[in-house]
Design a protein around this nucleic acid. Sequence first.
DNA 1: TTGAAAGCGCTAACAG
DNA 2: CTGTTAGCGCTTTCAA
Lengths: 336, 336
Amino acid sequence: MNHVKQSKRTTIYDLAELAGTSASAVSAVLNGNWKKRRISSQLADKIMKIAEEQGYALNMQASLLRREKSHIIGMIVPKYDNRYFGSIVELFEDMARERGLFPIITCTRRDPELEMEAARTMLSYQVECLIATGATDPDRITEMCTGAGVRSLNLDLPGALAPSVISDNFAGARELTRRILMNCDERLGKKGPLLFIGGRGSDHNTSERIRGFRQAHADFGLPVEEDHILACGYAPEKAERALDDLALKGNALAYGMFVNSTISLEGVIRWIRRSGRLDDRDLVLGCFDWDPFVSLLGNGIEMVRQNVPGMLHKVFEMIESGASKPEVIQVPPLML
Amino acid sequence: MNHVKQSKRTTIYDLAELAGTSASAVSAVLNGNWKKRRISSQLADKIMKIAEEQGYALNMQASLLRREKSHIIGMIVPKYDNRYFGSIVELFEDMARERGLFPIITCTRRDPELEMEAARTMLSYQVECLIATGATDPDRITEMCTGAGVRSLNLDLPGALAPSVISDNFAGARELTRRILMNCDERLGKKGPLLFIGGRGSDHNTSERIRGFRQAHADFGLPVEEDHILACGYAPEKAERALDDLALKGNALAYGMFVNSTISLEGVIRWIRRSGRLDDRDLVLGCFDWDPFVSLLGNGIEMVRQNVPGMLHKVFEMIESGASKPEVIQVPPLML
DNA sequence: TTGAAAGCGCTAACAG
DNA sequence: CTGTTAGCGCTTTCAA
């Protein structure tokens, strides 16, 4: 049954026979190098017409096997469940296609093993370049790629072995913190230090943001309360639980919070609504991430939006320039 | 330079030479059919070890060219910018991998030409099956696939030529409308008819939802005001403009709205905030789509969540059963 | 202006 | 238990 399917597929030999010519002529015409081969436009037209009629579709596997370059570019991405990664993927596809590349993307759920498996699979598909977005262990991926003679780049989270394009997390967090502190003062007349919540303490972005958070406090001569830094992970429930724990310990809650992602923000808002401990009019929030609904939440939540087009332009710039030195390019996020 | 890259790639011939054996033995071992070929576990171990050391990666192109089945499954999807399509893609990848298939996904931005181009490309990559999700012209895609002897399925939006798995839009919309009407009554003491906003009147889902919307009105003995059906498209700005137009025409705005997607809801909420015409306490909303932030908006917005796992299970069930008769399977959405 | 032929890396008979 | 061999469909010299 599957054999039938196979034998049904039209090949260039079929077309050649129908056109009374050779496979190589068909190949040349189909690839648009018929003027280089000085094939008569008569023959070219005839071949094109027959291909059309037969619904011919190239067998990419055969073509790529013979060709020297695959024109395939791979990307791995942790999740599709927020606007940030969604827009990265959508724009990446577009930009790749514009450049005549075929993008393949896969989601690895922040799982190091899945990341490696996905990377290996992409190498099997002969990707020319692999972009590791938000990878938990980018250097292992780079090593694997290098071993196969394939370039790799890191996006969103930096690695030590390949070029990395990331947001300027320190500066962004410092400015966001400054704004939250100002809002606290203006809206509530409070000058207390803030709470930091969300993210993984072990990942570079979170630690840079914590550094910016501390710096902004220092800029105002404010202390940072150590137990108010809650890098509790990304899932909404984790943020909820962390806030519960803090409240249980009887710690005074801050008047303002720096939330490390929209995903964590979900949990924070849910906690606020649920706990009834604080009305959201008493609380000033800021979020290092962007989602259109957040601005509609109506609490004057400050947001930092990562500059996705800016970062992807950098990525393709480096791909095109052939850069492979492990430098870190920081792209300033947009303050909204 | 690229030639260097190529020649660096280890092949099974290299491994065979290093192991002092033949390429076919290496192939068998690497594919796990060495017991079928009764290769000594000694040799098998040796080959595995060498492959590991050399960082060998299969050349999928060569493998697929020779194999009869590609194990590649394709999906086209309109957008990545909302939770619905995000979760479809994420779960689809998982379920495909669980079944030993390699998923390739591409985003076609509701553009019929891009859809066809993407489908053609996927055929070139020898997909065994193509899922057209929310396609603007699913039947053209099916025709193209059929011509190449490839199966296709429609998801989210139905087609006439292939099996389709969609939400039960009529029943969902009817129930959602009922709830909005009840809320209007309970919260505002109003029994007036609702406004329908968002979507494309030409697409099946929207027209089914409008049918459910009408039916629910009929159930209550209410009229539907024809100029209150605004199938203005999906983008937030379109919803905003449509509401502006309606207001400009001096039409009385409804007390309740049926919003056809979260994307449209963005525009609706923005319009409400901007226009100052109505405070959101005076307005009852319902949305045929789900987003975690919407429940946090605090206006008691009713939502219908499409049953993504349910739909994808149906999809894979049909793939596995080999179904190709053009029936439409309706999966009830979840009422939240 | 065109065709014949080699071979990309792999798999699956088949022949030991 | 293992190796040799014939292609999969295509691109690309090379020869005519």
